[in-house]
Design a protein around this nucleic acid. Structure first.
Lengths: 231, 231
DNA sequence: CGCGCTTTTTGATATCCGTCAAGGCCGTGG
DNA sequence: CCACGGCCTTGACGGATATCAAAAAGCGCG
């Protein structure tokens, strides 16, 4: 079995299901790249020139208004696919939150390869459908939840996603984890201000639901309580 | 050219690109159905048993919290695809807003057919990617826009989408159109309350930006002004 | 250790929007 | 024609969250 250098992370990669020749061909058109926190890979409204697979690290997908308000519309973890295949422009910017390794493809090359490999397109479709589900459930949060419900939901989701992606030693949701987000970025995910985020974190700590060992570290002390708050 | 009875609406249908035999086969597994306003086709969190193509009419996709708060996470127009292929459960309910005609498929049948017809899967992928783009730009609205920006953005989007779908005689954005939404449903799209929606409509009318000939009718008087408000 | 910078927290105040309540509009049916 | 019921509008009020401001906490670095 030829290993897929471009995208393999456990068995969630888009190349799962391709045969050896196909994997070699995909390797041939991909190029590894590293990005550092704050560095952009893709710009909103720019021509969609490249797509990529995340190998390691966490990146944010954002949209902004002209007057500088920002909304984080998605978060990409290892094995996630980023960029806009089969489209002229990207609808979101992609910026690294941590040091990250990705495998980038020219969009044209990738589109052509995908069209010739239905199994890959199918994987891409499954992921896109799953991402759409996740995005829709986030709309519920943005439109209908209050600040404390938003924070509780966010912490539970982070705990699940970071565990899933292997950022914690054992499986299952992580009790303690390191946030890849600053307070401002948490606010940009939840549609809140940094002050409201800070106050809600403090409240959860005072109520004994979480511990905050350092700025980026979170420990979930009372998961049941947090789930009740998330609604 | 065999006509695709299941889904053809202009050239946006998912079966565009299939050959005659394929279209016949697709026709064979689909079944036409009508739904009336308020009637559900798909229930949130239920097993994903069917998918469908909208032939005529408008439907809403919603998610709800246990305590009854509702968020409309998408709107399906003619030629749109609804339901969750390749997944165990649906993440949203689908309910008709107007009288609608749809072509339903058993999800199993459709999944099998799609996997055997890469061209169809490709179309589905393109639509899903486009829907994800639209959904993400709606997250910006929910998280970061205020009530008047939300309403302005909503009216402009409605005007575009209804025109696109052929609900108005001429092409281009519709100057005047009939909302398929009640005030409560507009509120559920925008993450507002019915009272706030009503007040914003009244304000736009008083400012001479729109006319409201009847409860469901909207006429855009000052599109430029509306665009400025949308931000 | 102290200095300067950024990020976060905390406090005071303002404001937008939600909530509650009443009244108006309009289609439907007696 | 009037009465009814659903939907919409309007008003008064309060509260959650934004805004503005300043202090505190980290953190790198000399």
């Amino acid at each position: 079995m030829t290993s897929c250098e471009t995208c393999v992370v456990r068995n969630r990669a888009i190349c799962a299901g391709l045969d050896n020749n196909e994997i070699s061909a995909l390797n041939a058109i991909g190029r590894r790249r590293t990005v550092t926190p704050g560095e952009s890979l893709i710009w909103e409204d720019d021509d969609s020139l490249l797509v990529a697979n995340v190998i390691e690290g966490v990146l944010k997908l954002t949209t902004s208004t002209e007057d500088g308000r920002e909304q984080i519309v998605g978060v990409a973890y290892p094995s996630d696919f980023i960029g806009r295949p089969f489209g002229q422009t990207s609808s979101a910017s992609v910026v690294a939150l941590t040091d990250a390794r990705v495998c980038v493809f020219s969009r044209n090359d990738f589109d052509r390869f995908a069209r010739e490999h239905p199994e890959l397109e199918h994987k891409l479709l499954e992921r896109t459908l799953a991402e759409l589900d996740r995005t829709r459930s986030w709309m519920m949060l943005l439109g209908r939840k209050n600040a404390s419900e938003k924070i509780a939901t966010f912490l539970l989701e982070m705990s699940d996603r970071l565990a899933e992606v292997g950022c914690t030693p054992a499986f299952g949701p992580a009790k303690r984890f390191s946030l890849p987000f600053s307070r401002q970025q948490v606010a940009d995910v939840l549609g809140l201000t940094i002050e409201t985020v800070s106050r809600q974190f403090t409240k959860l700590k005072n109520d004994g639901v979480i511990e905050l060992p350092s700025r980026r570290e979170v420990e979930i002390v009372d998961r049941i309580g947090l789930q009740a708050l998330a609604g």
